[in-house]
Design a protein around this nucleic acid. Structure first.
Length: 796
DNA sequence: CTGGTCATTTTTTTT
DNA sequence: AAATGACCAG
């Protein structure tokens, strides 16, 4: 990497501001109302820049103005690449930059603002040949990945009992994020556990290759390796993207790090923005050292810290600050606000989750009536989606408008998945997962046994399953009925594909080139999906038909949007190829939608969302529900300091979403997956400064477990202290029966954990509130586990 | 082959 | 509570 000509250290920048500042620029509204470090960031043009942007520090303003400034300086927009993590963030950033440029009468055409994943997906289509890929590959979403792992396990003759798909998948994902492919992982695998994972990994990769499919991680991995191995592509992209901007840099993983730094390696013009205190994606491979070590990667980098918070009032910020100070692995930093003390956050203690939801709706109702705060300026945040159900009910009962941020919800519906399955199969006839999904849905007489015969034939004859279906009448032992159904099925798929791609004579099915929404409509009709749901008259089925129609509308919308902001560089000449391309691109955007994409500030409704989805957003009033041990921090993180600190950051993110009103809630007991459990106050609550939080115990002081006395001799009855740390602390759900098996675990014992596998017990701490054990696992190292939660099995 | 019932299992966050 | 999987009668 070449040090930029105008190398600036932090002190140089600081010194240079007064006299170096261009007078004309200072007059530009682009610099209006900015603090000194903000101005410096906006002015920065060449070289590396790290912006440490605390919550509410005006990060988006700085970033968008900086890009506008670059263009104003005469840098062609198409040389600028801005990468974000969600479509929502990308869309917002693009929109705000466009507005700034429009105001100045500058064109912004060709500017790339995209998520990492969709940027990579596009590159892989454009450079499919160089990447040794087909152009019409399928992107496997989370569900597809799970199915693929299950099939891989089947092929390896391993049981999903001992090898949980989710756990296997996270190992594979972690490997890919470190740029290890199946071969590299296998080479590194030495112990039994990782060798087993390697075996599944290889089978999984085979399935993906045969299906012409890629998972989310592949998108990054393949681009990283394309950049590494193909010099032409690398230099072409380095040439094109002269200025890089990466948002939420604390959440980048190693693959993303490599992609960004390869692109920047020629010119070194890389600006990264982030906040280590808001790093909440460690579990999916985000590497916080990327941001912490940025100075090491770019010794000449300028570093700016945006510490002033323009969002929250004093007590809210004080609570957030006090909380995050408990993280030990952290650069000390102080947050300050000039918005005054404001209102103190309130902590309400509820009896159970229903009571908690009622308290929240009541409080929000008050804010709406008394303070005139609009519904859309309020949010309820929580650790797990499972908590949204009860809240939703309470909002319905209270007649308060609400929206749940679940961008994927629509595409998770059965009928939509089916319709998309057909579409995927049209684009990519090798997509076996989709084929399996739709081949008998709606039912057309191709059941399990017939399909197995078909598969066998396909393997023996070395043809794809779809090809085998064409020859169904040749398959021995297949009923004529099934063979017939198969041939009809394959004919339908080929005809639909023929509507997208001209045949040898240059003709389309039906002789006319149709549009994407027309194709979607045809799929819904030809597949029999529509008829399937139209014949029954239940409300549910009517809804399904409506959803299918909605899918046609979504396709229409997609086409309109693409036409608007299409980069002329990407357009393909052949109109026949382009419907297929368009479909492929549509399926790509569908695969990459995220929950936060669904957040629509225009809707006059309270937003319900997870803490993860809340990052980057702000609301006048925020309720943070479920401040209980096991929930926040989540059960699975207790026992690992690193994960516990990430949970604390998550709580920090939640608190700092609030501008003026913050409501914290917890319940004394909560029903989860059908079991009522007594809940303990979150340790994070104790870390909040009492002078900044008003605690109010509304649980009624009693702690009854449904009138049932149980056998809890330690429990004090009646007259419990109000406020925090009351009865709940002693009354953990721990010593209940059912966890009795703990006795067999002793130091030195060999145990099996559902996720971590086999390990040896190194130490045991026995406590009435819950005993814990330190276990050294063969695969993942040492973990401290709470015995009552960890389903440890003694292995003889 | 289909469509029902019954039993078992599940414990997070997401591109 | 809900979702998956196994099993069985038509």
């Amino acid at each position: 990497m070449m040090p930029p000509e105008t190398a600036e250290t932090l002190t140089d920048v600081m010194k240079s501001i007064p006299d170096d500042a261009n007078d004309g620029e200072q007059a530009d509204p682009l610099f209006d109302g900015l603090t000194e470090p903000q101005t410096t960031a906006v002015q920065h043009v060449d070289g590396a820049l790290l912006v440490l942007a605390g919550p509410g520090s005006g990060k988006t303003t700085v970033v968008t103005r900086r890009v506008a400034h670059l263009v104003q300086q005469g840098i062609p927009p198409w040389q600028i690449l801005a990468l974000t993590f969600t479509n929502k963030a990308a869309g917002e950033m693009a929109e705000r930059i466009r507005t700034l440029l429009d105001e100045r009468g500058i064109g912004g055409r060709g500017l790339t603002v995209s998520t990492f994943h969709s940027f990579c997906a596009r590159l892989l289509r454009r450079y499919a040949e160089q990447a040794n890929l087909s152009q019409n590959y399928t992107i496997f979403d989370g569900g597809d990945q799970r199915d693929a792992v299950k099939r891989a396990l089947e092929q390896c003759q391993m049981s999903t009992k001992n090898w949980q798909p989710a756990s296997v998948l996270s190992h594979i994902s972690n490997a890919k994020n470190k740029l290890l492919d199946a071969a590299a992982y296998t080479a590194e695998a030495s112990d039994f556990y990782s060798r087993s994972i390697a075996k599944i990994f290889n089978a999984y990769e085979n399935i993906l290759r045969e299906s012409d499919a890629m998972d989310f991680d592949d998108l990054l991995l393949r681009v990283a390796s394309l950049l590494r191995h193909n010099e032409d592509v690398r230099s072409e992209l380095q040439q094109r993207f002269q200025y890089l901007l990466i948002d939420e840099y604390q959440d980048t993983n190693h693959a993303q790090f490599i992609i960004a730094h390869t692109l920047a390696s020629g010119h070194g013009n890389i600006c990264v923005v982030g906040d280590p205190d808001q790093s909440i994606y460690g579990w999916r491979g985000a590497d916080i050292t990327n941001i912490l070590d940025f100075e090491d990667h770019y010794p000449d980098a300028s570093i700016l810290s945006l510490g002033q918070n323009f969002r929250s009032t004093g007590h809210i910020l004080a609570a957030a600050d006090a909380l995050i100070r408990n993280n030990r692995k952290r650069k000390l930093r102080t947050l300050h606000t000039e918005l005054g003390d404001g209102e103190k956050p309130a902590l309400l203690i509820a009896r159970d989750e229903h009571h908690e939801a009622d308290l929240i709706t009541t409080e929000l109702q008050k804010l709406n009536t008394n303070e005139d705060i609009a519904w859309k300026d309020m949010a309820v945040v929580y650790r797990m989606n499972a908590l949204s159900r009860v809240l939703e009910q309470a909002f319905r009962d209270a007649a308060i408008p609400y929206v749940i941020a679940r961008g994927t919800a629509f595409y998770d519906r059965k009928e939509i998945k089916d319709a998309l399955g057909y579409l995927r199969l049209i684009v990519n006839p090798r997509d076996e997962l989709s084929l399996r999904r739709v081949v008998n849905s709606p039912t057309r007489g191709i059941g399990k046994t017939s399909f197995e015969k078909l598969e066998l034939y396909a393997i023996n004859e070395q043809v794809s399953i779809l090809e085998a279906m064409e020859h169904a009448s040749d398959i021995e032992g297949l009923s004529a009925r099934a063979a017939n159904a198969m041939q009809r099925f394959v004919k339908m798929i080929l005809e639909l594909r023929g509507a997208c791609v001209p045949n040898d004579a240059g003709m389309f099915t039906g002789n006319v080139q149709i549009t994407l929404p027309e194709l979607v409509g045809q799929v819904i009709r030809d597949s029999g999906l529509e008829a399937e749901f139209k014949k029954k008259k239940t409300e549910e089925d009517e809804q399904r038909v409506a959803n299918l129609n909605e899918l046609v509308s979504a396709a229409t919308e997609f086409c309109e949007r693409v036409r608007d902001d299409d980069d002329p560089r990407d357009s393909s000449a052949d109109p026949g190829v382009s419907l297929l391309n368009e479909l492929a691109r549509y399926l790509e955007t569908v695969a990459l939608v995220s929950d936060s994409d669904a957040i629509d500030p225009e809707k006059g409704a309270v937003t319900l969302l997870t803490l993860h989805a809340a990052k980057g957003l702000e609301f006048e009033a925020v309720a943070l529900a479920g401040l209980e041990e096991g929930l926040l921090p989540h059960m699975r993180s207790i026992g690992s300091d690193e994960e516990l600190e990430e949970e604390r950051r998550l709580c920090f993110v939640g608190i700092t979403r609030a501008k003026r009103h913050l409501l914290l809630t917890r319940a004394m007991q909560r029903t989860m997956r059908g079991m009522r459990e007594r809940q303990i106050e979150s340790q994070f609550v104790r870390e909040l400064p009492s002078e900044s939080v008003n605690t109010l115990d509304l649980s009624g002081g009693h702690d009854d477990f449904g009138g049932d006395d149980w056998d809890q001799p330690w429990r004090r009855r009646g007259g419990g202290r109000s406020g925090s740390n009351s009865l709940g602390v002693a009354g953990s759900a721990s010593t209940r029966a059912g966890h009795a098996d703990v006795s067999g675990i002793s130091i030195g014992a060999m145990v099996r954990h559902p996720t971590f596998g086999i390990g040896h017990v190194e130490a045991i701490t026995r406590r009435p509130a819950g005993s814990s054990a330190r276990v050294r696992f063969n695969s993942v190292g040492t973990k401290t586990l709470i015995l009552e939660y960890a389903k440890l099995e003694v292995v003889e």
